[in-house]
Design a protein around this nucleic acid. Structure first.
Lengths: 127, 127
DNA sequence: TACATAGTGTTATATTATAACAATTTAAAT
DNA sequence: ATTTAAATTGTTATAATATAACACTATGTA
């Protein structure tokens, strides 16, 4: 468990307490009172947090959420469900899914070191 | 099989003959000689082409490739492999993979109407 | 101490994408 | 054929997302 730098901690705390994915400039607005003034400071913290698996990027939304999956392989194997109405995003932690995808081989027998999966649909509330 | 409008056809032809994913502004530069002058003209064509499943967006790369998977469910179920060195992207057409993911239910028994999966690794050439 | 590595602060700029409005084309339905 | 609705186009401006480049500071470690 690596210790975070000042900016990394500030950005992580904000994302971690958010109930929804946060976008970079929304993060910026929220941390300006903590002394982080420029986009690059946010992006650098985000890059590092993604790298060490504390947060994940939801690629289809350009937004970031904290990792709540303790067994997550340092952001090498991620899966999310996304509600197309309310935009609620949930990290999926299914052992069988991650096993299936981690072991998946393509036609040429090639295995991959990393994957990201995004499911779309309507959440319970929105159906 | 829907007929494409003029701009849609121009954009599709370009992407379709490209051997690699194309980014929106690269597309724009390439079609300016055909009379498409503004980003929005490109983005509108891209939106439509994605909607009808003729192309897919590689979300992690903000780039677009033609669909070469005849059985692809109109862009409702997409899977790609991405080489992290040469950035070669290939659409995966595996019946067992699409079956597994299409039928995947989360903890609450919820099924999803759509998914996008991106695998990362090194392609044959780059290993 | 010296050195390497990681992190910070700052300005400027690149890249990706959409808003808003007016006009035109297309397809279908009278 | 004429009307009508839907889709597409053209255009300018601007929003949103992300990185380059440079100087400096902090941290860990040999």
């Amino acid at each position: 468990m690596q210790t975070l730098s000042k900016n990394q901690q500030i950005v992580f705390d904000l994302i971690n307490k958010s109930t929804e994915p946060m976008k970079a400039y929304s993060i910026l607005h929220n941390v300006q009172k903590k002394g982080i003034k420029a986009p690059l400071q946010v992006y650098r913290a985000l890059d590092k947090l993604v790298e060490i698996g504390k947060i994940h990027k939801i690629e289809s939304r350009n937004a970031f959420i904290a990792c709540h999956n303790s067994s997550c392989q340092v952001s090498k194997a991620t899966a999310f469900s996304i509600c197309e109405i309310c935009e609620k995003v949930t990290e999926i932690s299914s052992a069988s899914l991650s096993k299936y995808l981690t072991n998946f081989k393509d036609k040429d027998g090639m295995k991959y070191s990393k994957y990201n999966l995004e499911f779309f649909g309507l959440c319970k509330k929105c159906r």
